[in-house]
Nucleic acid binder design. Structure first.
Length: 323
DNA sequence: TTCCGGGGAG
DNA sequence: CTCCCCGGAA
């Protein structure tokens, strides 16, 4: 097995192992092993994170491990106030529309029959990453108008033409290539439908954890894990909702965030949390200069006004991450 | 005008 | 870590 396969396999093992053990769950020792692998794998990405002390003002929620015979029980308490925070964000989202509300990829092919709709969702998702919702939406429509929301049609279209059609989305050459290959696999191995498991979705090039979980939720309505994109990742950390395993440090990768979040967030919130936080992140809790002043939860958010204006990145002192 | 982010691959 | 691409922000 080469390194790529191993990497993918590891990913798959991680996600498959994440059973909805919520507030309290008994987890066998093997679970710890998994985290060892994960930490080692992701330890590289220390890049522009201000490395040093993050004094999270929110309540410390270290995991408590209790050894009972051969089993380690891992208890992860939900953050204080999380329900109030979530409620507050929902209220914020009720007023005012975010791009994701109308142009999110779950809208793709909503008028099509199930199988076609699923394919449209997959293609839409594969194009949408790193791209504005509106742009993706337009590209999907463009494909549809050309009868290309269909794996058969796509494999018979040459890559350059395909790339040209989806040009407005970022990284279109790569995506055209990935989409064509995915279409071929759909035809050859899944009867023209899209894969219905995380494992098989992740095996598609151009589909990583974020998109695989999204597709499972949207296309199959079978949520296997939380779809963590940059918004969910950033906001979860600002809210003090997630921590690196065994610490009170912020998570450094979306995968860490996903696993940390899944430990306590009730499963019925797993699917809605993504559009909720994405919209919130697009409008209020923006990456740069979050609009804390007009945010409805600025009295209960541990990061409120903590990183308001940081003009010159170069002069920014290191070691004082938000909160 | 420059620069940065974003999901995933290599 | 860099590369892919481009819009939006500094």
């Amino acid at each position: 097995m080469n390194s790529v396969e191993r990497k993918r396999l590891n990913r798959v093992l991680e996600v498959n192992d994440e059973h909805p053990k919520q507030q309290v769950g008994a987890v066998p020792d093997i679970d710890d092993f998994r985290y060892v692998k994960t930490e080692a794998k992701t330890a590289v990405s220390t890049k522009r994170v201000p490395a040093s002390s993050n004094k999270n003002s929110s309540p410390v929620r270290l995991e408590k491990k209790i050894r009972v015979s051969s089993v380690v029980k891992v208890e992860v308490a939900a953050p204080e106030n999380w329900e109030a925070v979530l409620e507050g964000i929902k209220n914020i989202r009720l007023s005012g529309q975010a791009p994701v509300d109308t142009k999110g990829c779950e809208k793709a092919g909503s008028l099509l029959p199930p199988k076609e709709r699923r394919f449209a969702v997959l293609i839409s998702t594969m194009m949408s990453s790193q791209t504005k919702d509106e742009v993706t939406h337009a590209a999907v429509e463009c494909l549809g108008e050309n009868g290309l929301l269909d794996p058969d049609a796509i494999v018979r279209t040459d890559e350059a033409t395909l790339a040209n059609l989806i040009k407005p989305v970022g990284f279109y050459q790569r995506k055209a290539q990935f989409i064509k290959e995915a279409s071929r696999i759909c035809l050859e191995r899944f009867g023209g439908d899209i894969p219905d498991t995380l494992t098989d979705l992740l095996a598609l090039k151009g589909v990583g954890p974020k998109m695989a979980h999204l597709v499972m939720s949207i296309a199959w309505k079978n949520t296997q894990g939380i779809c963590v994109d940059t918004h969910v990742h950033r906001i979860s950390n600002r809210l003090g909702w997630v921590f690196r395993e065994g610490t009170k440090q912020k998570t450094t990768t979306p995968e860490q965030t996903r696993m940390s979040l899944e430990k306590w967030l009730p499963k019925d919130e797993w699917e809605p949390i993504n559009p909720l936080l994405v919209g919130f992140g697009q409008t209020i809790c923006t990456p740069l200069r979050p609009k804390c002043g007009s945010c409805g939860i600025n009295t209960i958010c541990p990061s409120a006004f903590k990183e308001a204006s940081s003009p010159n990145p170069k002069q920014k002192k290191r070691g004082l991450g938000p909160t």
